[in-house]
Amino acid sequence: MKEILLSTVSGFAVGVLFAKLKLPVPAPPSVAGIMGIVGMFLGYVLATRIGMR
């Protein structure tokens, strides 16, 4: 849980920094894009757990 909290806080800080420097966000600009990344991660985890790798 600590890793999730730390990564969320650091991601938030990086997002604020990018906004202040007027740089584009290095992530999909929509929830659908972010969910696509989450889906790829979950697919990878599932495939490695059931031995497809």
Rank of each mutant, 00 (worst) to 15 (best):
I37A: 05
M40D: 15
A13Q: 15
L17A: 15
P29F: 10
G51L: 02
S30H: 05
V16N: 08
T8N: 12
A27T: 04
L21S: 12
S7K: 14
G51D: 03
M52Q: 13
S10R: 06
G11Y: 13
L42V: 11
G43L: 02
G11F: 14
G15Y: 10
F41V: 09
L17F: 05
A27W: 05
G43S: 06
G11S: 07
P28Q: 06
K22M: 05
A13F: 15
E3I: 02
A32L: 04
K2L: 13
V25H: 12
G15F: 15
V14K: 11
I37Y: 02
A13E: 13
M52D: 02
E3T: 04
V9N: 10
M1N: 09
Y44W: 10
P24D: 14
G33D: 06
F12D: 15
P26K: 08
L5C: 11
V25R: 12
T48V: 07
R53V: 01
I4Y: 10
V45Q: 04
M35S: 13
M1S: 10
L21H: 11
V14C: 07
M52R: 08
L17W: 11
P29L: 07
A27E: 08
L5Y: 06
P26C: 11
G11N: 15
F41D: 04
M40Y: 08
I34E: 14
G36K: 11
L46V: 13
G33K: 02
L46D: 01
V38A: 01
F12V: 12
P28A: 09
V14A: 14
L5G: 10
P29V: 00
L21P: 04
V25F: 11
V31H: 07
M52E: 15
L42Q: 04
G39N: 09
K22R: 14
R53D: 10
A47E: 12
G43Y: 03
V9A: 14
M1W: 13
I37W: 04
F18W: 09
V16E: 08
I37R: 01
S10K: 03
L21Y: 12
G33V: 03
T48R: 11
F18Y: 12
G11D: 05
V31R: 11
P26I: 01
K2Q: 13
T48L: 02
S7V: 00
L23M: 15
E3V: 00
K2M: 14
G39S: 05
L17G: 10
L42E: 04
M52K: 03
P24I: 08
A32V: 03
V31I: 07
F41R: 00
V16I: 12
K20Q: 11
I34V: 07
T48D: 06
L46F: 07
I50T: 15
